[in-house]
């Protein structure tokens, strides 16, 4: 049987008794781009943090490669995946140090770090930026540094939380190309949270729609978009629900 990169079983998350996510069952195939779609405040970021093991669910399980989590393998698992946050939280240092960070904490040798950082900066179109201070960059450049910093680790799974939400159309296009490139070149499983159905359609092979704490539809991205089963999605496509 083919195993999923990630599978969740009845994953729920509450904050102070308020239920945000209810019994989420996800099956994410390896090597594909998955979109998590839903309106603002529905819990997309929370879901990504749960999957990246940055938070614990209130109940439910997550399986990686079909295996349940064990308390003692968090770090190992965490090092197979990484999350690019909605607001790129760059370290207050140079671009180089930011991109090198994940490699340094893994104690890779300097030569290979320099080489990989150089390559990653080239891919995101920031060659020659390595000595700049991260906080002096534009929003689009920061987002690309955040992606480079994740990509350089060659993660098996890459989580992207609204990677283009605050960007102009040119940067949106650059980053969408980048996402497709990473998926194609490195066979990285990508999970992207977005409130933009159109972006999901441009990028994703598969999509799950979150609404009021639950997944109301899951499957092939094109199909969900052209022929949704749930009428709320149809109403969204017609512009009656603002996602």
């Amino acid at each position: 049987m083919r195993e999923y990169a990630i599978r969740t079983h009845n994953l729920s998350r509450e904050y102070d008794g308020e239920v945000i996510l209810k019994e989420i069952n996800l099956q994410l195939e390896r090597g594909r781009i998955h979109a998590i779609i839903g309106p603002s405040g529905v819990g997309k970021s929370v879901l990504l943090r749960l999957l990246n093991l940055l938070e614990r669910p209130t109940s439910g399980e997550i399986y990686f490669d079909g295996k349940a989590l064990k308390e003692n393998n968090y770090l190992k698992l965490q090092r197979r995946m990484t999350l690019v946050f909605q607001k790129p939280a760059l370290f207050n240092t140079s671009v180089y140090e930011n991109v090198a960070y994940g490699l340094k904490v893994r104690r890779e040798n300097r030569g290979s770090i320099a080489e990989k950082v150089e390559k990653a900066l080239g891919i995101v179109g920031l060659k020659g930026y390595k000595h700049k201070r991260a906080r002096d960059l534009s929003g689009g450049e920061k987002q690309r540094v955040a992606i480079a910093r994740a990509m350089v680790l060659e993660p098996e799974i890459l989580f992207l939380d609204e990677p283009t939400s605050d960007l102009d159309p040119r940067n949106v296009a650059i980053i969408e190309e980048l996402i497709k490139y990473i998926n194609r070149e490195f066979k990285t499983t990508i999970v992207i949270a977005t409130h933009n159905m159109f972006q999901a359609r441009r990028l994703a092979h598969q999509a799950s729609v979150l609404f009021e704490g639950r997944i109301i539809e899951s499957g092939n991205a094109q199909e969900i978009f052209t022929n949704p089963q749930d009428k709320r999605i149809l109403r969204f496509i017609e512009g009656k629900i603002i996602f």
């Binding site: 770090l75 960070y101 994940g102």
Partner: peptide, 13 residues
């Protein structure tokens, strides 16, 4: 706190 989460997500102990 996003800095902390980023560090953990990038594999820091």
């Amino acid at each position: 706190p996003a800095i902390t989460k980023s560090a953990i997500s990038l594999g820091a102990t």
